[in-house]
């Protein structure tokens, strides 16, 4: 089970992350979960083997502030989420513009959970076998 989860909003995210940096927290990674209606971004931190998470719930299409100005190592994972989930980050230190992990002819935001018909139409009949 997930312990130590703090809910944050787009407005309070940067303050919460900036408060963790001097306390010796290390950023492990970001996880994006598609909850159909909205996207959930989890920020995993740890200090002395103790985990701590921030949970940010945003509507699809929201611009999320980038934490790469605070934790510079976040830049690669934010670019990955941008490619795979179509999330937009504001203030990315280094922006690959959606070409970090996917090539120009790759499906758009392939990790999103969409109705199969929609996904097929958008991705040009790209099939994934179960």
């Amino acid at each position: 089970m997930l312990h130590n989860v703090t809910d944050v909003t787009v407005a309070t995210l940067l303050d919460a992350v900036a408060a963790r940096f001097p306390q010796g927290y290390r950023l492990i990674t970001l996880t994006c979960v598609d909850c159909v209606d909205n996207l959930e971004v989890l920020y995993h931190f740890y200090r002395n083997y103790e985990l701590s998470h921030l949970r940010l719930c945003v509507a699809k299409g929201t611009v999320v502030p980038s934490i790469s100005g605070i934790y510079s190592c976040a830049v690669i994972v934010e670019n990955e989420l941008k490619d795979l989930f179509g999330l937009t980050f504001d203030g990315l230190v280094l922006d690959y513009e959606g070409r970090f992990m996917l090539a120009a002819d790759a499906p758009v935001a392939p990790m999103l959970r969409t109705a199969p018909a929609q996904a097929a139409a958008r991705n040009g009949e790209l099939k994934m076998e179960p």
């Binding site: 990674t29 996880t31 979960v33 995993h44 690669i76």
Partner: peptide, 24 residues
């Protein structure tokens, strides 16, 4: 990171591997 909803399939499987963390 695993998220399950009580069915046979999982809702989300997220893997952060060590090399990803060592790139910076």
């Amino acid at each position: 990171y695993l998220k399950a909803n009580g069915t046979k399939t999982l809702e989300r499987v997220r893997v952060r591997t060590p090399t990803f963390a060592n790139i910076p």
